[in-house]
């Protein structure tokens, strides 16, 4: 069974249960073995001084270079962008190896409730790893692969894949429940 690595690549220390929470959701969604991996490096070259944000695309390249074989999800707390958008919650190589997700835009100012942020992080983690498994955005209401352009979109989604998306995952990925 293929392993998915969850790698904290943020600036501050991760919230205690965050990585475990992500790991459980990924295991349930993809029926895969998921490990929290403690790599030391950070994608320093992904910082864009002009935008004062981090390029998610450069982080993906760095993850592919830095992580051993298998799928890897980088979890961070820095603000991510792609050149054409003001920000992204995360990015993934569709059908590739790497995905990245950030808590920066999931925790809105004035909403310090950690549980809500953790739920959103878990959903977006499953979403980005879903792209790594080759899934595109899904129109089924509530499916975690629905596009998320705002936190409202994230909150509207449930944490799991719809039946159609589960069916599209190659053989090793089957939801356990």
């Amino acid at each position: 069974m293929e392993e998915i690595r969850v790698w904290w690549i943020g600036e501050r220390h991760p919230v205690g249960r965050a990585l475990d929470h992500v790991r459980l959701h990924l295991e349930r969604a993809f029926g895969a073995q998921v490990a929290v991996w403690e790599g030391m490096g950070r994608p320093e070259d992904a910082y864009d001084a002009r935008r004062k944000q981090w390029s998610s695309t450069r982080i993906l390249s760095w993850l592919v270079r830095s992580a051993p074989d298998g799928k890897v999800l980088g979890v961070t707390d820095v603000d991510l962008f792609i050149p054409i958008l003001t920000f992204v919650f995360g990015e993934a190589q569709v059908g590739g190896r790497a995905a990245v997700v950030s808590t920066a835009r999931l925790a809105e100012p004035g909403l310090p409730d950690e549980r809500i942020v953790l739920e959103r992080l878990a959903k977006e983690s499953v979403h980005e790893v879903g792209h790594v498994f080759g899934l595109l955005h899904c129109e089924t209401p509530g499916c975690v692969m629905g596009r998320s352009s705002s936190v409202r979109d994230v909150d509207r989604k449930r944490g799991h894949l719809c039946a159609a998306c589960r069916g599209r995952i190659p053989s090793q990925g089957r939801e356990a429940t």
């Binding site: 962008f81 054409i84 958008l85 003001t86 705002s150 979109d153």
Partner: peptide
């Protein structure tokens, strides 16, 4: 206007 707000682009 670049860069786009993701929600604006989606809608």
């Amino acid at each position: 206007v670049k860069p786009f707000d993701p929600e604006e682009l989606t809608l």
